[in-house]
């Protein structure tokens, strides 16, 4: 699944922010286990974060436009797929793609990858980085693609 390396490959990154609430709770665990494993993140009423998402697309610039893809197009994809779905939502209850998953950084970033990858038709999705806070983030790549 490795991405072909090419001398003219350019990596373009677009950033967006969204705010959402979540909580960590596994119904298969006892209340004590939930508390032990998830700590404060298990508080029943949830809590929120300002998430920062960085989406990197790899591709060769089109010789006519000089663009890997039109940033307007990427912005619209991100608005439709991510902002409308996740911004000012409760991730546990309002985002069907996260149903039955603990909405950790790892799982949210994987869901974001799966939402975006098929929509990006100019260039290829290279990396998704999701910051939950400035000190905690997750990166997603296609297997075999060297992180950069």
């Amino acid at each position: 699944m490795g991405q072909p390396r090419n001398k003219t490959m350019v990596y373009l990154t677009r950033k967006l922010e969204f705010s959402a609430s979540h909580l960590y709770h596994n119904p298969a665990f006892s209340p004590e286990e939930n508390k032990r494993v998830f700590g404060k993140c298990n508080n029943p009423h949830g809590h929120g974060h300002n998430y920062t998402l960085e989406v990197t697309v790899a591709g060769e610039p089109d010789p006519t436009t000089g663009m890997v893809l039109d940033l307007k197009e990427l912005k619209e994809i991100l608005e439709r797929e991510i902002t409308q779905r996740m911004d000012h939502r409760h991730l546990n209850y309002e985002v069907p793609e996260l149903k039955d998953q603990i909405p950790t950084c790892e799982n949210i970033s994987r869901v974001i990858w799966n939402l975006l990858e098929p929509k990006i038709t100019h260039g290829r999705l290279h990396k998704v980085r999701l910051y939950e806070t400035p000190d905690l983030f997750a990166d997603v790549y296609r297997n075999g693609v060297k992180p950069s």
Partner: peptide, 14 residues
Amino acid sequence: MSNGLHIELGRRYK
């Protein structure tokens, strides 16, 4: 790892 994706967790310390 999970459907062909490689996932990393990043953490910052000071």
